Computed example of a mutant assay.
Amino acid sequence: MRVHKLTVAALAVAAGLSLTACQNGDGGTGSSSPSPVSTASSASTSGGGSGSDSSNPGSSDQGGGKESAGKNSGGTSSGGKGTTAGTGSDKSGAVGKCRTDELEITAKDNTIDGDPDGTVAVRLKNRGGRDCAIFGYAGVDLKTSAGSLSAKRTGEQANHVVLKDGESTAFGVNYPINKSGGSGVRITGLLVTPPNETKTVTLTWPGAATLPVTDGTGSPVKVGPVGNAGQGG
Rank of each mutant, 00 (worst) to 15 (best):
V221C: 03
Y137S: 03
K143N: 06
D61P: 01
E67K: 14
T193R: 08
P57K: 05
L6W: 06
L124Y: 03
S42R: 10
E67Q: 14
P116W: 12
T100E: 05
K143L: 12
A21Q: 09
N110H: 07
I112D: 05
S50T: 12
G74N: 10
K81R: 15
V221A: 01
L103F: 02
E104Q: 15
S18H: 08
G30W: 14
G224C: 06
T29W: 15
C22T: 11
G139L: 07
G79S: 13
G27Q: 13
T7A: 13
G27T: 14
A229K: 03
S44C: 07
A209N: 04
Y175K: 07
A208W: 00
V13L: 12
S35E: 12
T198K: 13
S150H: 12
I187L: 00
D131Q: 14
G88S: 11
L163N: 01
P206T: 02
S46H: 13
G118S: 07
G207Q: 00
L149Y: 01
G75A: 09
A209W: 02
V162G: 01
G172F: 02
N56R: 12
A146V: 02
V95F: 11
H160A: 14
N126H: 00
S78W: 15
F135H: 11
T210S: 07
A9L: 08
D90G: 15
V13C: 09
S55Y: 07
N228E: 08
T119Q: 13
S38R: 10
A69C: 04
G147H: 07
A107E: 01
S50D: 13
S38N: 14
F135G: 04
S33V: 15
S42H: 11
P36I: 06
S73C: 05
V226C: 02
T154R: 06
D109Q: 08
G230F: 02
K199A: 14
S60Q: 14
D101Q: 15
V213P: 00
K222R: 04
K143V: 03
L6N: 05
S150D: 10
G58T: 10
G207M: 02
G80H: 10
S92A: 15
R2V: 08
N228T: 11
G128V: 00
A15E: 06
K5I: 09
L17N: 05
N72D: 13
P194F: 03
D61W: 08
G47E: 09
G227C: 07
L163K: 00
G82M: 09
T76G: 10
S78L: 12
T193I: 02
G82Y: 08
Y175F: 11
G218H: 03
T83Y: 14
D117W: 03
S219N: 08
G93Q: 14
G93D: 15
P206G: 01
V221H: 00
T144G: 00
V223K: 08
S219L: 07
L142E: 00
N196Q: 15
L191I: 11
R2C: 08
T193Y: 03
V192H: 01
